[in-house]
Amino acid sequence: MAVTEATFQEWEAKLEGSNFFGGDDPSEEDNNNLKALDGSEPPATFPNVFGWFLVVKMFTEEVRSTWTAPKGKGGKKDKKGKKEEKKEEVKKEEDDDEDDEFDDMFGEDEDDAAAKEEIAKKAKEDKEKKKKAAPVAKSIILFEVKPWEAEQDLDALAAKILGIEMDGLLWKTEFKKEPIGYGIFKLIMGCTVEDDKVGVDDLLEKIGGDFEDEVQSTDILAFNKV
């Protein structure tokens, strides 16, 4: 997703006198443009863009995705009529190798209704594209939890464990009790985790730590890519 020199010039002008593309508050446009850069630093010859990049990239993807579309305030330098074009640019930016078209569009005077339709279509496409382009890496884990004593209530323990909430953690609500021997049973439980959000060791340590009096040990039985 290369960003052309022309686009940088465009951005440089837009960021002149405002912190973000949408004005003083970050918007979806900032997120989209940052994604367009795909992690590469903009050339320092565009100081506004460069400064903007340093600020925006400090936010996590999660936070950035909560930024909504510009509220129509626009940058101080924008005329009202340019609003639609601006939005269009946001959508355009995400498409691969369409910089030429983007430049053309910007130069043209478009009928508002048509532009809107185009925007809606693009938005939909982009959404689908995003879904496809960046699948969240997940793992599925099967693990066992062993108690201290044969008499413990494993159903109650399982319920407590299933009560653990973490961002990116999804429990399999089904669990099993398997015999170890001598009347002792262990719990077999499962979950899926988002690789970047949930540490599997952290989760197991939490189970062992939070329920120390009931959990003697935990062990992973299967650890697979979803």
Partner: peptide, 29 residues
């Protein structure tokens, strides 16, 4: 696997006539 409630899909196994296999599909975690 991703959203279901059952845990049986966490183990990946298959059989050939002579063997049984368990797959460890290495995640990037």
């Amino acid at each position: 696997q991703e959203r279901g409630i059952t845990i049986n899909c966490a183990l990946r196994q298959f059989d050939t006539p002579s063997r049984s296999y368990t797959i460890i599909d290495a995640p990037g975690h």
